[in-house]
Design a protein around this nucleic acid. Structure first.
Lengths: 131, 131
DNA sequence: ACAATATCGCAACAATGTTGCATTAAATGA
DNA sequence: TCATTTAATGCAACATTGTTGCGATATTGT
């Protein structure tokens, strides 16, 4: 008995926002963007659904905040172990290219997922602080 | 005008708990362990202080929960970019040896810190589930 | 169009983290 | 040792973030 998912306005709008964003966005980002478009709870539920459908993916930021992205560059090497960059100033979360990593686990360990994030200051914020 | 920190009972007790734990612990773990020993708020403030003093360090777990550890093996190579391993079963958080990583940031970016965590199942849990 | 039911909005709740302020207790020097 | 200074605590109140139940609504297959 498979549960069918429906394409609702909320889902479409949220996915559009995530797809059009250059960085991973949090629940709060979405809420601010959508305004009164839909309820706070709906956003939680849509995000859950979209994640299950694998239309987006979850990234835990270095401050513990969960972000969502449909990061096409991520998708391209989703099975690989690539690194995310998190700006401590503007909170931008992006994918770092050219950082494919080979991880070696000790004998007997089972690998599930890699969470690789570097924190720092992105170019935009560096430039802005120098002005 | 440097601010002096004091060694209080709460701080001592919390640090003792973290040091004696084999895994990284959350605020909730500490609260459960200490019971009525001190206030919830005090734990938050002590953790903040201990982190500033670098007596412990913060690790964001793969589920977004912030954990604290005094991981001695971490301390040894704290300046390097080494990888943590987080067991999804027993929650054990340990350091992975032989995984020194070279990270390359885009031009103009400033590096601050690397958060590298691999989730999976540790040997102990793998063995146990096979029995 | 109609029925089935996935999804929504709302309210209420739970968990987690923060702030202000009066009180307590470390650390220091007399 | 004792008084003084002020860091740290406890408490209350608040803020933020995430969850759950349920009646109402809207999407989808027929």
């Amino acid at each position: 008995m498979k549960k069918n998912t429906r394409n609702t306005k909320a889902k479409a709008e949220i996915l559009k926002f995530i797809n059009s964003s250059t960085r991973a966005v949090s629940h709060l980002d979405i809420q601010k963007s959508l305004g009164e478009f839909c309820d706070r709870v709906t956003i939680y539920r849509v995000l859950e659904r979209l994640t299950e459908e694998k239309s987006i993916h979850r990234i835990v930021n270095v401050d513990g905040v969960i972000n969502y992205a449909s990061c096409s560059s991520c998708a391209a090497h989703h099975t690989h172990n690539h690194v995310h960059f998190s700006c401590i100033n503007c909170k931008e979360l992006s994918c770092l290219e050219n950082n494919e990593i080979t991880l070696t686990l000790p004998e007997g360990y089972q690998f599930k997922e890699a969470f690789l994030t570097v924190s720092g200051v992105c170019k935009e914020c560096v430039d802005r602080s120098l002005v």
